[in-house]
Design a protein around this nucleic acid. Sequence first.
DNA 1: ATCATTTTGTAACAATTGATACATTTTGCC
DNA 2: GGCAAAATGTATCAATTGTTACAAAATGAT
Lengths: 225, 225
Amino acid sequence: MIDYSVLVKSPLFHGIPDEECRALFSKIHYQVRKFEKDAIVVQGGEEVTNLFVVLSGSVRGEMIDYSGKTVKIEDIEAPRPLAAAFLFGKENKFPVTVTANKKAELLAIPVVEFLKLLQMNTRLLRNYLNSISTRAQFLSQKLHFLSFKTIKEKVAHFLLQQAGDLYHSFELKNTQQQLAEMFGVTRPSLARVLGDMQNEGLIKIEKKTVTLLDKEELNSLLKNG
Amino acid sequence: MIDYSVLVKSPLFHGIPDEECRALFSKIHYQVRKFEKDAIVVQGGEEVTNLFVVLSGSVRGEMIDYSGKTVKIEDIEAPRPLAAAFLFGKENKFPVTVTANKKAELLAIPVVEFLKLLQMNTRLLRNYLNSISTRAQFLSQKLHFLSFKTIKEKVAHFLLQQAGDLYHSFELKNTQQQLAEMFGVTRPSLARVLGDMQNEGLIKIEKKTVTLLDKEELNSLLKNG
DNA sequence: ATCATTTTGTAACAATTGATACATTTTGCC
DNA sequence: GGCAAAATGTATCAATTGTTACAAAATGAT
């Protein structure tokens, strides 16, 4: 039995009334699978044939490295979906092995049935499309950012983005330490680059206020990479 | 008028018979917009309210930088869709300004109408989901790869992936120059790292055959990053 | 205001990678 | 086999970044 009041809190079924959910699920095949603590939910590398949603308890994804040892873990609590981004596409295999942290219930909807759901309910379709699109956009932005090789390029891009087209100064909302982590560099290295850019007359930093003195030049740092 | 024989060659409508396409489009609102050479199809930053498919001619996407100059361009020929990945999600704005290279015809389907299409035709839904999922997976893999900072880590990851879980040796299908470009490093730097790894007894390279001598150690290079 | 804590600026040195150059090996073709 | 072109191994030096350390400045709580 599905507790629909839990389900609608998941990003997928958000905004769909309990009753509507009930009606939807009455029209498709699905399973509610129960797992004991430490039971394996899915093996990494297995083909993704079902959409899983954690209904109760929690599960963890474990990366298995090439030599067979488990490494990183990520916890997934109810009512989050599992590997929703890997339901479709070319490589629709689970990237990780998923294990139950404690007693857990998972909703398993076969891909074909999920497709039916998507075609029956516009809100669900929108939710799903939004979630994987947002993910793709996030990845795309991150990738674009990582394409800048030097710290100077990363900083220039960040500053221009923060300022936007209209403004020339703005308030920093993060410490250098946090920025350095975002950029994947060390804090002294970031400070050095910021210092250099000040000496070169590109920017001015007073407390938390950054002023871009030469947007033109900052831009050319990006293009000539 | 839409030439359906062109349309079904696009990844989105692939596998849907002409007749079925015709029937689908008879049920929704859409426009076929004509553009003269150098006419602006969409402004960068504009909200994406339509799915565009190039029916004839070709268009180009132009990045506009922070100071207002155009930079990179990418050509899109018929029958490719335009910014299909930005139809949904949080930031559904065109990342680029799109201009017609020559006389061009574009099919414009409002988002709401496209949703109807997706709900009417399972094949189309599958096509669309597959295309954005594949894209997301591609980005995800690329991102994971870029998360390795040193050349050594990148090489270790590449070698372990190529060999797979079972094998310990394989044939290189690329030249060092090509690999170096994949990794975003210079060729001598890559050669140096490969040489070091041989000296350390991690791998052995004979002509195009690579043998992994110490998978365990190669793995630990990745985890201790 | 004062003091402890956090944040920032900066320096010296090590490690990594890029740039360039050249010798050597391999490959493909005759 | 012989030869030209491509690919590879290697060396040197410059540029960038990481590492570590420490002092100065800013922040926040009392």
